[in-house]
């Protein structure tokens, strides 16, 4: 584990250094990344130019959901977004070259072509989050102040687990990155909207099957002072760290099983 983090750091540092060598190009891609992710929020703004409420939620409230989901997803995407390329490495057998190095393969795959420009998404999510907080006039309790950063970190952990599990799946289905994207990017988009606009079955699904609801919905609704649509007991709002740890453990197991099933290629 420590060895893996160290290796991850080494590779990330090397890629970042080489990206920063071309400063202008780096700034431009980061700006593009920032603007492109901002389009999502523009869509929400446009919607609110027609309606006052979305599923009973005001613009600042939706912005709060958007900001928390975007930041949590952005953190995971920055750290592990490269993993969606694993399928290609499995198909063409270039994963072989990572297996002969003395550091964990997961760290190498996760850090491969680390793209600091993805930081644009985090910045954009945080800006929206800060804006929403200034507009919401919430009564912050000490608990809420703990809940917010915990929510962002646990959310990043849950999304991170989805990235790893999705990559593990690619050991068996070499071109499953589409499926993975629908869970990661699709999930992040879903969480930008209030649960009340979706069917109950879907909300149940992302609570109990694929626990994305713990990324922001459940804790955010408490901070916003709203009921969750499934009427779950109150302590569930504090479960995200536990859910994140459980998800990461499962994803780790899936990863190890996937790696064991790797059979290289004939040429």
């Amino acid at each position: 584990m420590a060895e893996g983090l160290r290796a991850y750091g080494l590779i990330v540092w090397m890629w970042t250094r080489s990206a920063l060598a071309y400063r202008a190009s780096f700034l431009m891609t980061a700006a593009v990344n920032f603007a492109a992710t901002g389009l999502d929020f523009l869509a929400i703004l446009l919607m609110f130019s027609q309606v006052d409420r979305l599923g009973g939620f005001s613009l600042p409230e939706v912005a709060f959901l958007y900001g928390t989901a975007g930041t949590a997803f952005g953190l995971a995407d920055l750290a592990l977004g490269s993993m969606e390329r694993l399928g290609g490495r499995v198909r063409d057998g270039t994963l072989d070259t990572l297996l002969v190095r003395p550091v964990p393969v997961l760290a190498q795959v996760a850090a491969d072509r680390f793209a600091l420009r993805r930081i644009g998404r985090i910045v954009q999510g945080l800006l929206v989050l800060v804006w929403s907080v200034t507009r919401l006039e919430l009564h912050w309790t000490a608990l809420d102040l703990v809940l917010l950063p915990m929510m962002l970190l646990s959310g990043a952990g849950i999304f991170g687990a989805v990235f790893v599990a999705g990559a593990a799946f690619q050991f068996w289905a070499g071109d499953a990155s589409e499926v993975q994207n629908s869970f990661t990017y699709g999930g992040a988009t879903l969480l930008q909207y209030p649960p009340s606009v979706f069917a109950k079955e879907l909300v149940r699904g992302v609570t109990f099957v694929m626990p994305l609801a713990f990324v922001n919905w459940l804790p955010a609704l408490r901070i916003l002072g709203r009921q969750d649509p499934l009427g779950l007991p109150g302590w569930v709002d504090f479960a995200p760290p536990l859910v994140a740890v459980a998800c990461c453990a499962l994803a780790g197991a899936a990863w190890r099983a996937g790696l064991r099933s790797y059979r290289s290629t004939g040429s």
Binding site: M14, R17, S18, T97, V100, R113
Partner: peptide
């Protein structure tokens, strides 16, 4: 048939 080096990095890195 395949390199163990990092494709986009200079040899030195």
């Amino acid at each position: 048939q395949r390199t163990t080096l990092w494709w986009d990095l200079p040899l030195r890195d």
